[in-house]
């Protein structure tokens, strides 16, 4: 199948989500509540302090929104669907079609995620901007770099989620793997607490793992907490991680395909 045909999956995934309006309203509500909860937590933490480690409360409000709903999107449903398709053998139906399964997943999830960003994150961001206030990017250059980081972040999150789901073929269940990942992401991505507030040794270790490129680095670059050379360098490291994870996925998928064909599904 030609690559140009794949975006059709994105459009289908997007429009099919429109049928569930209750999910949209409750999604906005849930995200709004969670976002304001974290804003309240940081507000309470900053009581009586102006800046902590060079970070202000408005910085943290913006951080909550970018590192949380925007970048650290909820992968639970995706992992369970893909994991179940793999474990039950439903995935073999895709082997019969002239398409690349991981590519299909990529474009499909892009549509799903675009839908959620537009219907859930965007309204939440607008409400936060008008009630509490959001900061613009630290500079034009930081803003442009953030866009590149966003792409890397999305790619790494997609790859981590897909790899996690694929592991269900060899070990555990998608259910258990998803919970393991949630535990790891909560700390290591920096979605809840940025690395700059963590003890130095822990921050140093987490700063090299790919999870930090999902939430921490993009948000830090947006807020200008990394100077431009450091931001460029870390973008390059993020791209290396992206390539490495894509390589692992390709290798794992080809092994799995082989196994599926040999087993006859």
């Amino acid at each position: 199948m030609k690559l140009s045909a794949y975006p059709a999956f994105t459009a289908t995934a997007f429009t099919s989500r429109l049928a569930y309006r209750n999910q949209v309203w409750s999604g906005v509500f849930g995200e709004l509540v969670a976002t304001f909860a974290f804003i309240a937590v940081w507000t309470a933490a900053f009581v009586g302090r102006g800046t902590v480690d060079g970070v202000t409360l408005p910085d943290m409000v913006t951080y909550v929104l970018i590192a949380g709903p925007l970048l650290n999107w909820n992968t639970t449903r995706y992992i369970r669907e893909v994991g179940d398709a793999i474990r039950t053998g439903d995935v073999t139906t895709f082997l019969l079609k002239p398409l690349h399964y991981p590519a299909l997943l990529f474009f499909n999830q892009l549509g799903n995620n675009a839908f959620e960003q537009l219907t859930i994150t965007l309204p939440v961001a607008i409400i936060v901007a008008f009630t509490v206030g959001l900061l613009p990017p630290a500079s034009l250059a930081h803003g442009l770099l953030f866009v590149a980081y966003w792409v890397v972040s999305w790619g790494i999150m997609f790859l981590i989620a897909t790899l996690t789901a694929m592991l269900a073929f060899w070990l555990l269940t998608a259910f258990a793997l998803d919970w393991f990942l949630r535990g790891i992401m909560a700390v290591a991505s920096g979605a809840i607490v940025p690395l700059w507030f963590m003890p130095a040794p822990l921050a140093a270790v987490l700063g090299y793992l790919p999870f930090a490129w999902v939430s921490y680095y993009p948000s830090a670059v947006y807020l200008g907490k990394l100077d431009l050379p450091a931001a460029g360098l870390h973008l390059a490291i993020g791209c290396v991680w992206l390539a490495a994870l894509a390589g692992v996925l390709t290798w794992l998928w080809s092994r799995m395909r082989h196994r599926l064909i040999v087993q006859g599904g």
């Binding site: 919970w179 393991f180 909560a186 700390v187 809840i192 822990l202």
Partner: peptide, 17 residues
Amino acid sequence: IAQAIGYAGIYASIALL
């Protein structure tokens, strides 16, 4: 174990904060 780790991750974040 997986669910306990899932929760422990969030609690660890709160502890770090």
